[in-house]
Amino acid sequence: MNFEFIPENKRKFEEYLKRYPQKKAVLLPALWLVQEQQGWISPESMEYLAKLLDLSHAYIYETVTFYTMYNKKPIGKHHIQVCNSVCCWLRGSQETVEQIKKKLNIEVGETTTDKRFHLSTVECLGSCGTAPMMQINNDYYEDLTEAKIDKILKELK
């Protein structure tokens, strides 16, 4: 499937070019635009950015695979990322993971069959004081309890 920025993103991309002394620096912001537009970084989108930024497809692939937040394949509509780093673990994040697995009937790294939820565990999200916590797409959900998780998942359906 071919990829092209929608006009709004093309405008943002042109704006980003003015912010840096070298074109290559726009790569990370441009990848964010791709992900906002289609939810993941497809090979076609890398090919597209390679042309726009005068970089090789290989270079872009190499960069994309370094960063955990760029999705290398399509995922569910709501990406649930539970922090399971040391400070969240001290306050019960493993139970949080187990509760969500049970509620959605999926393992970590899987997507629900209706493609609504994808579950990951991640390292520190800088929210240790409000642990346990999770990020769903751009939003943080903190001080989680089982009742709170129920409510959040219900509202997202």
Binding site: Q22, K24, A25, L28, W32, Y59, T63, F66, M69, Y70
Partner: peptide, 23 residues
Amino acid sequence: HRGAGAYICGEETALLSSLEGGR
């Protein structure tokens, strides 16, 4: 400039590599 989920980018030279558009 938004990072994309790599702790090492807080190290100042890694940050520069990331800012310039790479790993």
